[in-house]
Design a protein around this nucleic acid. Structure first.
Length: 506
RNA sequence: GCCGCGUUGGUCAAGGGGUUAAGACGCCUCCCUUUCACGGAGGAAUCACGGGUUCGAAUCCCGUACGUGGUACCA
């Protein structure tokens, strides 16, 4: 059996959305599970849609997700080039081969003629007429033009495309690894363009040729490609490569809250749709990514993997290694899945709790630094991370949840304190400061004892005092156990914050 | 319109002829905690509809509805 080789073939036209990342992931998982190769090939045959920076962006995303290709424009490999625009010549030869064998033909129709054809044939029942067998005899193509006419047109450098000649009344079927047998009536499929007037292939020709040349064994792509599968199947056959044809799997779509997940409208949904921030160079419009939103790549990969796949067990949290181990294409769902941002956040929360602190620090530290916090040494920072991580859903939550450890609060939740603040309490806290100073060692239990003893002595309810102390140290009613916070920030800072707060409360 | 693919709680889903139809997210109640979380115990909520086949259908078949994708010299 030949080696497993799968490819992800993005076109550099913009951000990498959820569905795209999941497609890469499944490709990657399948390849790794079977000890095969994962190839990234750039499909840029439509130069008019090419967006500067999009290629680099795609690789940045793959890198962040931990999906390293074995072969690509960046990583090299034996089947270079991996950019379709650089493989232009080979496609032309194959297209001509198809014409000579009678499986394809030259079409000289201009854009206007095509438009006219669509306009003339448009009816209520047929709003989108196709260039198919019912119509091709009426068009300007080598199917009914004489040889001399064709040669003449070619000699005059008339613009032409090469179209596949779809056969009549054939059932074209194949077995999809996810959905089983799928079949089409060839009569209903149109004569797709294979080679464009600019000499570039269309996707249809390019995938087949490249998959063959790159020895791809399994072709996994989005469900939107299912309707054009018969064209690809025929091409494999007409080119004489039927035996080498890869196994297909058409992955289900990821849907937004109301139907199709549109690429650009992250803001509309209130959650990201791209892996990483994407700024369209033409419009300068920024679409926020999962990375910048505060997602861990581990969580992002995890949530995408189980959106449309499960291994039949109750496990939901998977590392990349576990995914590679458990993944199988036949357990991928047939139906599309609606993306649920609440569940996505749950995955992130779980991963924040699950990840070891040192690893987590690598993600958290830059975020805190970017917010201008003055951070202590790593081991002190780790203690804080350990203390607050269970209440952080997104990495960006660390700013609020951990920030007060590194910065004296300058505002207080006065509303929470006001009803409970009076001269007695003020007196209490002033005495508390001196008691704290007298402590042999400033630990949370020593402090707690001193705190409670003084409360009993003054006959004040401990609970109320604790709430006030919390607001004094944190600024608001949040965070881990108060005395632990005090111990963490130290004696001097604790006293400083108490005295600071007393002034503010008055 | 035509073609393809789908349809199990609000969402992700297990189950593929006999089940009290798992589990997770979210929601609600309670416990823990005089903060917020975490954790724990419960709860509400589902087989799109109509026909068949069968002793028996969420499960198999056929229709219908709905959703979604395609119908470009875009991928």
């Amino acid at each position: 059996m030949s080696k497993v080789r799968v490819r992800f073939a993005p076109s550099p036209t913009g951000g990498l959305h959820l569905g795209g990342v999941r497609t890469v992931l499944y490709n990657y998982l399948y390849a790794k599970k079977h000890g095969g190769d994962f190839i990234v090939r750039i499909e840029d045959t439509d130069q008019t849609r090419f967006v500067t920076g999009a290629e680099e962006y795609i690789f940045d995303c793959l890198n962040w997700c931990g999906l390293k290709p074995d072969e690509s424009i960046l990583h090299g490999g034996p089947y270079a080039p991996y950019r379709q625009s650089e493989r232009k010549e080979s496609y032309t030869a194959y297209a001509k081969q198809l014409v000579e064998a009678g499986y394809a033909y030259y079409a000289f129709d201009t854009k206007e003629e095509l438009e006219k054809m669509r306009e003339d044939n448009k009816t209520a029942e047929n709003p989108a007429p196709q260039y198919d067998q019912s119509i091709r005899q009426k068009m300007r193509n080598s199917l009914h033009l004489t040889d001399t006419e064709v040669k003449d047109l070619l000699a005059k450098n008339t613009a032409y495309v090469i179209r596949i000649k779809m056969p009549a009344n054939e059932v074209i079927s194949f077995t999809d690894m996810i959905r089983g047998e799928v079949s089409f009536d060839s009569t209903l499929v149109d004569d797709k363009v294979l080679l464009k007037a600019d000499g570039m292939p269309t996707y249809h020709l390019a995938v087949v040729v490249d998959d063959y040349l790159m020895k791809i064994s399994h072709a996994f792509r989005g469900e939107e490609w299912l309707p054009s599968a018969p064209v690809h199947l025929l091409l494999w056959k007409y080119l004489g490569w039927e035996k080498q044809m890869p196994q297909w799997a058409h992955l289900p779509l990821i849907m937004g809250p109301n139907g199709k997940l549109s690429k650009r409208d992250g803001a509309k949904y209130g959650f990201p749709v791209f892996a990483m921030n994407w700024t369209d160079p033409k419009t300068n419009e920024l679409v926020e990514g999962f990375k910048e939103k505060g997602f861990l790549p581990e969580a992002f990969i995890n949530l995408l993997a189980v959106l449309g796949w499960n291994d039949g067990t109750e496990q939901e949290l998977y590392s990349m290694e576990e995914l590679i181990e458990s993944f199988s294409m036949d357990r991928v769902h047939v139906a599309g899945a609606k993306f649920d941002y609440e569940k996505a956040k749950w995955f992130n929360h779980e991963w924040i709790k699950k990840l070891d602190t040192e690893h987590l620090r690598g993600y958290v530290k830059p975020i805190l630094l970017a917010d201008n916090f003055v951070l202590p040494d790593d081991s002190s920072l780790d203690k804080v991370i350990e203390l607050v991580k269970e209440r952080c859903v997104l990495l960006t939550d660390f700013v609020q949840q951990a920030g007060f450890f590194f910065k004296t609060p300058d505002t207080f939740d006065i509303d929470a304190v006001k009803p409970k603040w009076d001269a007695t309490k003020k007196d209490y806290f002033e005495i508390l400061c001196s008691h704290l100073n007298a402590l042999p060692e400033f630990t949370f239990s020593n402090m707690e004892n001193a705190f409670k003893e003084l409360a009993t002595e003054k006959n004040i309810k401990v609970g109320e005092l604790q709430m006030i102390l919390r607001v004094m140290l944190v600024g608001s009613k949040m965070g881990p156990a108060v005395f632990t916070i005090a111990e963490t920030i130290g004696l001097d800072e604790t006293i400083k914050r108490i005295q600071n707060a007393i002034i503010s409360f008055d």
